[in-house]
Design a protein around this nucleic acid. Structure first.
Length: 392
DNA sequence: TCTGGGGTCCTAGGACCC
DNA sequence: TCTGGGGTCCTAGGACCC
């Protein structure tokens, strides 16, 4: 088995530099605005310490001459689709892992392209020629090793780790470099005196399971040895039914300023619920569990969910559920920073038994929401607002 | 000028049942 | 009248990734 992981370098920033070449000479990043974060920074900005996920204000402090560019998600989606077609010119076994990375099963590609490195270089060349986007490639015996190899290859490089070189490659790395080991796990490993992947590999399964639980303990050991993670299927292809369906659909929004005004909060929950309902309908899905998430001004969060008596994709039902949870919480003038609504327990609309509730004019709302969908399709989501949201 | 929005998965604890 | 041991389901919270 030979897996190739392709990862576009600084993807959003690269798309922006492609259409605004003057930005190539400057440190720049995509993102920003009030309470915003950096979504993607070019390598010039990274030399100043600017990183993805960083508060935009901090980026601007680190790099006062840097240029912040507003994100254009539609443009990134188009670029991603174009690159996906190039992936498919190499092999039909392509699985997009996110907007800017994919796994390719190139076990059979050798006949056409030669050695693994030649496959990777051919792919990198095609993407650069056709899309002017730099891409790093990692190749290894499974997804994990391929992914780690592409990280090591960045930026604009290629790394092939044959099966018999996997531990040589992984074991000198710090544990926090492992895909799946974040800040919290790294910190706990450090407390156990474990700093290198090689050290982690030699800890007993028992010890890790005691510290992290049965699955996470096993998973950490698998990572350290570069083993295929459990539950990992083959790379999707046109011949196998691809990708697991969505587990949940949600939307969240941060207020311009923190608020404890229940009317403001309710209005925002309506806006967010209507986005979720619209996306459910677009996906042909209905859901049964509504989850409300609140982030307070001190960044602590709570989330509470409620299970409905029937499936829904209707704004007011989702909104009423969210408001119901909120009222039950009985908060005493909390300063709220962000509200979020997520619907899970999803089912295909045609599979679900759509049972009208007794107290709501279900059919009427469904008709109204179909009209909403049509208007959004024609004029865009910004053209439309619920009467309740126009009040102020 | 401190910290977005889209998700998934795992764990722990309580309820409930046998 | 003093209490076992599973199994399963649900919920809340946390960790992680892009």
């Amino acid at each position: 088995m030979l897996i190739l992981h392709a990862d576009l370098d600084a993807f959003y920033a690269s798309v922006e530099m492609r259409r605004h070449p003057e930005l190539k000479l400057l440190p720049m990043w995509v993102g920003g605005g009030h309470r915003g974060v950096v979504l993607s920074a070019n390598y010039a900005a990274r030399t100043y310490g600017v990183r993805g996920g960083m508060p935009a204000a901090q980026a601007q402090r680190l790099c006062p001459n840097g240029v912040a560019v507003r994100p254009d998600h539609a443009a990134y989606a188009r670029a991603s689709e174009a690159v996906a077609e190039i992936f498919e010119s190499i092999t039909p076994w392509v699985e997009m892992a996110s907007i800017d990375e994919a796994y390719l099963d190139i076990s059979g590609a050798g006949r056409l392209f030669g050695e693994p490195e030649q496959v990777g270089e051919e792919l990198r060349r095609r993407i650069l020629d056709a899309e002017q986007l730099p891409c790093s490639v990692g190749i290894g015996p499974n997804r994990l090793v391929a992914k780690m190899a592409s990280s090591a290859a960045k930026p604009d490089g290629l790394r092939y780790i044959p099966e018999d070189k996997v531990t040589d490659f992984l074991h000198p790395l710090p544990v926090e470099d492992l895909h799946g080991v974040g800040a919290a796990t790294a910190e706990r490993l450090h407390q156990l005196g474990i700093h290198k992947v090689g050290e982690l590999a030699n800890v007993s399964l028992k010890t890790l399971q005691r510290a992290f639980g049965p699955k996470t303990g096993q998973n950490l050991l698998d990572l350290a040895w570069g083993h295929t993670r459990s539950g990992e299927g083959p790379v999707a292809s046109p011949f196998h039914e691809a990708r697991q369906p969505d587990q949940s659909i949600g939307n969240q929004e941060t207020f311009y300023v923190d608020t404890d005004d229940e009317q403001v909060i309710s209005d925002e929950l309506l806006r967010v619920s209507s986005k979720v309902a619209h996306r459910l309908r677009q996906a042909g899905k209905v859901g049964k569990t509504v989850n409300l998430n609140l982030r307070f001004s001190n960044f602590s969060e709570i989330s509470k969910s409620t299970t409905l008596s029937s499936y829904t994709d209707v704004t007011i039902e989702i909104h009423q559920a969210a408001i119901g949870i909120y009222r039950k919480l009985n908060l005493n003038h909390p300063r709220i920073r962000r509200v979020g609504v997520r619907v899970s327990d999803l089912s295909k609309r045609e599979d679900a038994y759509l049972q009208p509730t007794l107290d709501a004019p279900e059919a009427g709302w469904q008709e109204a929401e179909k009209a909403v969908d049509k208007a959004i399709d024609r004029f865009g989501v910004k053209a439309l607002s619920r009467a309740a949201l126009l009040r102020r």
